[in-house]
Design a protein around this nucleic acid. Structure first.
Lengths: 338, 338
DNA sequence: ATAGGTTGTCGAAGCGCTTCGACAGCTTTT
DNA sequence: AAAAGCTGTCGAAGCGCTTCGACAACCTAT
């Protein structure tokens, strides 16, 4: 491995000069800079990460904690992770991948060892056991998701409450009065995952305000589970004409089942999805949906973090405004007469 | 931050002794060891990663390069990534997430800077431009996927050629003679991604051996693309009774379309998937499939890598034997008489 | 022409750890 | 009883970098 010292020698300057060329923290004459840069190129020099971290107390690494569960839509996680990684790179950071498995210990380990300069947490529970640790350290962090108490924390998330409201409003506008919500798997609610509960809040509140009836049923993904759930819903509330689906792996099964039962979408029933655009556009009926801006969330999280690391930025909650795209799965409610 | 020296002082020993307690590289008396461990716990000591990396020239980090494309089934990537991360942790390694974006430069950067001790590459092209770099360095690496020339490389992958053969055999055994293959998106083939081509090889070879007719059509995911593709296939070869699907986002669309056209699965046509079990079991018809052992691949990759880092292990190609699970989507070919 | 600024460069200290050689105090062998 | 070998511990060097203070060399202003 070629070292700073070797570059310095090759360029006929001192080591510190090379360092300053690299960091730009002191002014260097054009001639010297060029000579040094030339040497760096010729020798194929790459600064040693460990030495750098030791001397500067900065690792230039951002830790990203992803959940290892797979009961929530995985592509969203992946898209966030990729957005985090690419955005981090544009700011000169690399990303360390941590799974939720280690839990709070991972936070301790990373902060304690200086492995990373900052961290991003995904899959935040309303009352997450990692939060006290984050509050108790001076290491910057950003949550993707919203816990119950956001004081002293920086968070980025879709405004799921507004998302719920938006879905209800769209269906209300079309004349629907009885709505059923196909939710995430029961485990997601038991775990008190913020986004699921907030969506539900938004749905309930707005439907109440608009005088609509709302039925919420958690649902494991897949065809069989969806069949059972749908049967129960139609049994309990046959007048249901609008569906809101928040479980991506229930979308296609729902559409298939409705078709199979002779209920036309959108003539007889309307369906609104809360899912990535890709799912909405690839479904057998192009789905009216509120999209999950995974990329945007990942990007914002990194940018907040970098701002903090640069001494700018502060603790604040950034809620992304949901947008509903009308596609082919929603239409006017059928008149009750026929 | 508490340092080694502070622990040493607290325990009344020298710094090197503490280091040896931590690494176990020299024998330490029970009494001393306990005193040191006690101090470590009391002070909440965590070794500094940068210092460690500098002094030992080992970062205890494995780099994982994932593709940033999303035209291939993302959950598989995610599952591999998670398996890699958790397996790595059990061996004391952390995982650095790199996206394919940087390409060969990422390899140079990581090897050059000592950021990681080893790397795992996913989404390997048959003629991948990162390979010469890997061969030219002494940093261990493992590929998930198979390039054209594997000399001097360690690879882990599902045996896709055998997978193709297996699918054909299953359909042959059931009496099918005309088979259509719904492949990955055209871009995947244009890129010469190994697994897609090897599957095709296996399918073609075995169907030829068994005297079957095979039609291969790439297909973007989604309902609309699948509709077009299916129409073309049935137009060109109306006698088709067996389908092999290698594009996971075409599975449900295909099933829906067949249903819609009044072709019953498995009575009229049989469908075999090459996809993760989750997709196969959640489909509207439980799919006979060869599963993609994502976890196993991630785990094996890490274990090969750790073996190399420990001086054991060698360059070899590990092909995982495919397994076909019969579910509800395949049955005897309809007799040609009716 | 001299005091006061800049600008560009260098030397040296030190970041927190690992690791090598040394060695004191034992135990075993001859 | 001396030589040889273990064990457990320590001190010091050094990994490759950043950063601070020092200081020539050159510019202004007066």
């Amino acid at each position: 491995m070629v070292t700073l010292a070797e570059v310095a020698q090759h360029a006929g300057v001192s080591a510190s000069t090379v360092s300053y060329v690299l960091s730009g923290k002191r002014s260097i004459s054009g001639a010297t800079r060029q000579r040094v840069e030339q040497s760096i190129r010729e020798l194929g020099y790459h600064p040693n990460a460990g030495a750098r971290a030791l001397a500067s107390s900065k690792s230039n690494i951002i830790a990203l904690m992803i959940p290892l569960r797979t009961d929530m839509y995985v592509p969203v996680m992946m898209e966030i992770a990729i957005a985090v990684a690419t955005t981090a790179r544009t700011h000169g950071y690399d990303v360390l991948l941590l799974t939720g498995e280690e839990g709070p210990d991972a936070v301790r380990r990373v902060t304690g060892s200086g492995l990373a300069d900052a961290m991003i947490l995904m899959d935040v529970q309303l009352d997450d056991e990692r939060l006290p640790l984050l509050r108790g350290t001076d290491q910057p962090s950003v949550l993707i998701g919203l816990p119950a108490d956001t004081s002293g924390l920086t968070c980025v998330d879709l405004d799921f409450k507004a998302t719920g409201a938006l879905c209800v409003e769209h269906l209300a506008m079309l004349g629907h009065r009885d709505i059923a919500v196909i939710g995430e798997a029961p485990a997601v609610y038991e775990r008190h995952t913020g986004f699921a509960e907030r969506t539900l809040d938004g749905l309930r509140l707005r439907s109440q305000e608009l005088g609509m009836r709302l039925l919420h049923r958690p649902c494991e993904g897949g065809y069989d589970a969806m069949a059972v759930t749908l049967a129960r819903i139609l049994d309990e509330r046959p007048s249901t004409t609008g569906f809101v689906v928040q479980n991506e792996s229930a979308v296609e099964p729902l559409l298939a089942l409705l078709r199979q039962q002779g209920r036309a979408v959108p003539e007889d029933v309307s369906v609104v999805g809360i899912c990535p655009d890709q799912v909405a556009t690839q479904a057998s009926v192009r789905l009216t949906s509120v999209s999950i801006p995974a990329q945007e969330m990942g990007r914002h999280a990194v940018e907040q973090l970098v701002a903090k690391l640069d001494g700018r930025g502060s603790d604040e909650v950034l809620l992304i405004t949901p947008e509903l795209t009308v596609r082919a799965s929603t239409g006017p409610a059928p008149s009750p007469t026929h």
